[in-house]
Design a protein around this nucleic acid. Structure first.
Lengths: 243, 243
DNA sequence: CGCCTGCTTGACCTCGCTCAAGGCCCGTGG
DNA sequence: CCACGGGCCTTGAGCGAGGTCAAGCAGGCG
């Protein structure tokens, strides 16, 4: 159990004004660190976990396999995210969560989390809120995959990634890490790998972005936002971050 | 304020073993009934509601407008559902919610809901869980619109509708109300109206279902499940209902 | 009777998929 | 130092699921 920098505390302080008594309660939540390799499955559909985890470093993804062999990435998790927070109240997992890059994780027992919630309703509310923001992102992704053309779809994804990276403290102005392959992008957007490739070339040719070598750089934010029909309200940023 | 049959109580008793003291606390949540006509907007993207509502009767839908004029239906709400429960912790709504049929609604002030949650953590947890099940359904819908072919996509939708209608006490064996137009189905599945029409004909021709006149009848549940790649775990039914 | 909403059909087109092959980069081992 | 292999990215060619446009039809209601 870390004393000075508890990962959950770090995360909560991003969006909540944590009091001193809350702070020490959070520190009492047990933490079991773990390192996983890229492509490793962290938790699997059908699991009944007794703990949940926070991504301290790296990228993870929630995904589902489909009947005919396809896979859909449903959510991306950056540093500070709690990919299976919902397991606190849903006993059986309905999707896989796997590491996209090498990750540092912090596992925390459900028991401790429940105690924390019941002793500190403000924290319970904030954790609840976090799961609601996740749900809001699902809604927007659904619109993305079902309504937007390939070009807008990728534009929207990159807009979101830049904003969220910035929130996680990973970006500098127009650039953020993008440690994913084109195949991953295909699974996030429901496009084929080949078409993702061609669409990326289109975005590059229009001088909107550069992607490659693990980095995304946005050259023309306004046009990318326009093209991607990106309105960030669905991220429910606190006014501080939206600014 | 209803005494004997409070709509929230009715809903919670479906999935929670409500104690006597909880019961009376729930009854203290103010209820303002309202009737809305089909196609009326109930709450709108950008609103900052100070109350949330339960669908007592009828069908409602959460939807978003897209840049180029399209609309995506993101969720369906049947009797007993709480379409904007997330407004308890997200101040600004990110989608519209509108009535599909004429609806009876029960509005409940956030203030009362928050008091209920803080005095009765089990209820707070159950309401949290309800929002998590909604999120799980978003995940599955995302898979549906992005990965399955039109035929499977509709099959999956109808499987879900029958199961959920049954949970809401609206179905009898293979049949349930389906008070929606083909245009609505198109907006739920991300298909064009024309293609929905043809795909429905295909489903009918295969003797899997009958649709029309406001009713859905499933003739061959097993084959429909197979075709729709339908695995109901994502609905997180309590074992009681899953049976 | 006439209209409006919802369903159906036909014809044509296109966005994105599939299959297949080739290129680039980098790490490994001989 | 070079050969080899494996990810990952790129390109070409052909095809098909589903979109779009346009029109006609059926039934319920004022």
């Amino acid at each position: 159990m870390l004393q000075s920098i508890h990962p959950l505390l770090t995360r909560l302080e991003r969006t909540l004004d944590v009091t001193e008594s809350e702070r020490s309660a959070i520190r009492r939540v047990g933490v079991q660190p773990a390192a996983v390799e890229a492509d490793e499955v962290i938790v699997r559909e059908g699991d009944r976990p007794s703990r949940c985890f926070l991504v301290a470093e790296g990228w993870a993804a929630t995904s589902k396999l489909v009947g005919h062999g396809g896979r859909q990435i449903l959510a991306l998790h950056l540093a500070g995210d709690l990919p299976d927070l919902h397991s606190l109240h849903l006993t059986i997992l309905d999707s896989d969560i796997c590491a996209i890059t090498n990750c540092q994780l912090a596992f925390m027992p459900h028991r401790d989390m429940h105690r924390l919630c019941h002793e500190h309703p403000r924290i319970a509310d904030e954790l609840w809120r976090i799961t609601l923001v996740d749900a809001s992102i699902y809604r927007e992704w659904m619109v993305n995959v079902s309504q937007r053309q390939a070009l807008s779809r990728l534009a929207h994804l990159f807009c979101e990634l830049l904003v969220r990276s910035r929130m996680a403290g990973l970006a500098q102005d127009g650039s953020c890490p993008l440690p994913i392959t084109q195949a991953d992008v295909a699974e996030m957007t429901g496009l084929s790998l080949v078409h993702v490739n061609r669409t990326l070339q289109d975005l590059r040719a229009q001088n909107l972005i550069s992607v490659g070598h693990g980095t995304l750089t946005v050259h023309d934010w306004d046009r990318l936002v326009e093209l991607g029909d990106f309105r960030p309200d669905y991220l429910h940023l606190s006014p501080v971050h939206a600014a």
